[in-house]
Amino acid sequence: MTEATLEHARLQELVAPFADGELPPDAARLVQEHLRTCARCRRELALQQELARALSWEPVARPSDDLRRRIEQIGQPSPLREPFRWNTRWMAAAAAALVAIGASVGTLLRERRGSFDRPVAQIPMFRDAIADCHRAMARNFPRKADLQAVGEGLQFPIPTLDQPDAELFSTWKTTLAGSPAAGLAYHWRGIVVVQYVVPTELIRRPPEVRQALRGSGFFAASEQGQGILAFLAHGSGTLLVANAPLEELKRLM
């Protein structure tokens, strides 16, 4: 390879940054000199400039008003302490119900069951479900319902609630106790119900849940009309959290 060829190879690498005005003056002068005698690099320069110009004219997406509102809400005091400004896509009744879930979810899991004595909120699976529920609420459940997308990559089926009046409106992927999980939110009889679908081995892991499953087939905790249910169905585990009495919530099993 001749010296001129090497020089050409080195300088043609600089044609794009030259076209973009990104070269320091010395390097830019060298490229300019080279361009006087190299037709190939002149054509390369024209190509780089034309494409850059054409791309700068391409239309780009713009944020919706709804997104702008949601972004502006970030950093507002927690919805657990103050009324939350809901996504405009929400029905008012559902929003009110969800606030109630948020306000109560921290306490509802204090219920103890069976012969085990630790607070339910100390069980990693439930602790993470509470935290995830808070996060999803803080973001107004931004994901639209897409069961196919939420099920991709998960090694267990995602059975939805088998109730014609339970309307699925949001799905998302999450992690509970280090295990992949799917979050599904429903409007149901004027309240919001959150379902977490998890691997069966995860739901069986806490001894108190395992014991309850062996006995009644479900694990339940409730307080002041709030409820949480854990059970196995269709090859997966399900956790339900909602602002509803347990008896009412069991209709969703």
Binding site: A61, P63, S64, D66, L67, R70, I71, I74, A138, R139, P142, R143
Partner: peptide, 11 residues
């Protein structure tokens, strides 16, 4: 979905 990404990024 793109807006979800942005909202998550801002959060």
């Amino acid at each position: 979905e793109a807006e979800d990404y942005v909202q998550e990024a801002y959060a």
